[in-house]
């Protein structure tokens, strides 16, 4: 692939991650653990969908098609982003893993030679501060109680290694051409260090020794994707030709 194609693939994968997590977060509308958290969490969902929209707009003028209309194997989302979180514990843990990853990913694009991408990254990175603050404040608060430790520890340790897929895919030539200021491997190391430092506060350890997942980046969808995608396009399917 030429650097251009590699850059497009990277942006597409990021956009697909944002779309999946935005859609997944939005399932908590009206059923969050309490009203204030419900509002905060689904406000983050809107931001993530906004990020997806901004990134897709770099790749296509037909946003509905690129977001909703591709065959499943053409999506590039990581499986952790596609994961249906049926309980609040895993929803909160994925939120933290995802937003810490986003923070690192946007930072690598702030001064990109792809100027439109740098503009999007600058705005998104500012929003990301709030997302990270929200996730970490709530997570630390809950982990400081015995019940929170009991509920969250195993989910954190189980899901964290799956988060490495956020940094999977090719970045060949992207640092040289200035699209990224940091390679995916270095971004991943920064992210893992943040997770390790966070968990160390609560005497928890992640086992990073397994093979990092990457299937999602190469067209294999997780089991959860079709449920997620069906939900996304449910209204669109009623009348595909309707004007919105």
């Amino acid at each position: 692939m030429s650097p251009d194609e590699t850059a497009n693939e990277l942006v597409l994968a990021f956009a697909d991650d944002e779309l999946c997590v935005g859609q997944n977060h939005s399932w908590w509308i009206a059923v969050g653990p309490f009203l204030e958290e419900d509002l905060a969490f689904t406000s983050i969902a809107q931001d993530e969908l906004g990020h997806a929209r901004a990134l897709y707009s770099l790749l296509s003028d037909d946003l509905d098609h690129i977001a909703y209309g591709r065959p499943h194997q053409e999506y590039r989302s990581s499986h952790i982003a596609e994961l249906l979180c049926h309980d609040w514990t895993s929803a909160l843990v994925r939120h933290v893993l995802h937003d810490l990853a986003e923070e690192v990913r946007w930072a690598a694009m702030l001064d990109s030679t792809w100027v439109e991408l740098a503009t999007i990254a600058t705005r998104a990175a500012a929003e990301e501060q709030f997302h990270v603050q929200h996730g970490l404040t709530l997570l630390r608060r809950l982990l400081s109680t015995p019940e929170g430790q009991l509920r969250l520890s195993s989910t954190l340790i189980d899901l964290a290694p799956k988060g490495r897929e956020y940094f999977a895919g090719s970045d060949s030539g992207l640092v040289t051409s200035g699209i990224l200021n940091t390679s995916l491997a270095d971004q991943e190391r920064t992210w893992m260090k943040r997770i390790d430092d966070l968990l160390a506060e609560f005497e928890l350890n992640v086992d990073w020794s397994g093979e990092p997942p990457s299937q999602g980046r190469y067209g294999t969808r997780s089991r959860d994707f079709s449920t997620l995608h069906d939900e996304m396009v449910a209204v669109l399917q009623i009348d595909p030709l309707a004007n919105w």
Binding site: F34, L35, E36, E37, L39, A40, S43, F130, Q133, H134, T137, L138, R141
Partner: peptide
Amino acid sequence: SFDAPDSELALLYARET
């Protein structure tokens, strides 16, 4: 008005709510 568990989360929820 709204509910929050502590002042740090209170500022966060106030802003979102």
